[in-house]
């Protein structure tokens, strides 16, 4: 019989129609505000700065090396080094701005950072009432705790913590070795 294909197709769509009322799995749409946050481990948009401990400024991992500033393709990062009272440059940024309206979320800054300081955030609710100042994220806004990092990207945060610990261990080892060398050479003098 001709025309069976049409009936078969109609059956498929009917199944989908009624199925979407019966089984929740068919409906993949998440109704946004009330449907809850469905951010996945790997989701990313704008970078943020990680700090350890409680105090954002003291625990800041960033050393103001400005590698990310140079690497950023649309050049939306602006960094100014902090200085102490005598005018000596400190190893932390006084100003760290990211223009969220320009950032394209390419994650290059994350890749170049040698200090595990800058990571991608996954907060997408960024709307503001002001197009210019509102989207200019300053240091205070960018600094977020390691706990938060663990919350949004547990795997990345753990890996980053492990690397830092490894680095710290190596540093201690090197120091111990140097101290041992020093104490070994001293008696000869």
């Amino acid at each position: 019989m001709n025309g069976q294909g049409i009936l078969k197709g109609m059956l498929v769509t009917a199944k989908n129609f009624f199925g979407s009322y019966v089984s929740r799995e068919r409906l993949t749409t998440v109704s946004y505000p009330e449907g809850g946050n469905t951010i996945k481990e790997q989701s990313r948009n704008i970078p943020f700065l990680v700090f350890d401990g409680e105090d954002p400024v003291a625990g800041m991992r960033c050393t103001a090396c400005q590698k990310c500033e140079k690497a950023c393709p649309p050049q939306c990062i602006f960094i100014e080094k902090d200085k102490d009272e005598r005018g000596k440059a400190l190893q932390r940024p006084k100003v760290f701005d990211i223009d969220a309206s320009v950032c394209m979320g390419c994650q290059i800054c994350v890749e170049v950072c040698p200090f595990e300081s800058i990571w991608m955030d996954s907060n997408f609710e960024l709307s503001t009432f002001n197009r210019f100042e509102g989207l200019q994220f300053n240091r205070e806004k960018l600094l977020k705790s390691n706990t938060y990092f663990h919350k949004i990207h547990p795997q990345q945060a753990q890996a980053s913590d492990d690397r830092l610990a490894e680095k710290e261990r190596k540093r201690l080892e090197r120091e111990a070795a140097r101290r041992a060398e020093k104490s070994a050479s001293e008696p000869q003098v």
Partner: peptide, 13 residues
């Protein structure tokens, strides 16, 4: 609404 459900969407809600 109907087309939405056929395509497993909610449609206007």
């Amino acid at each position: 609404k109907g087309l939405g459900r056929i395509q497993n969407r909610y449609g206007p809600n």
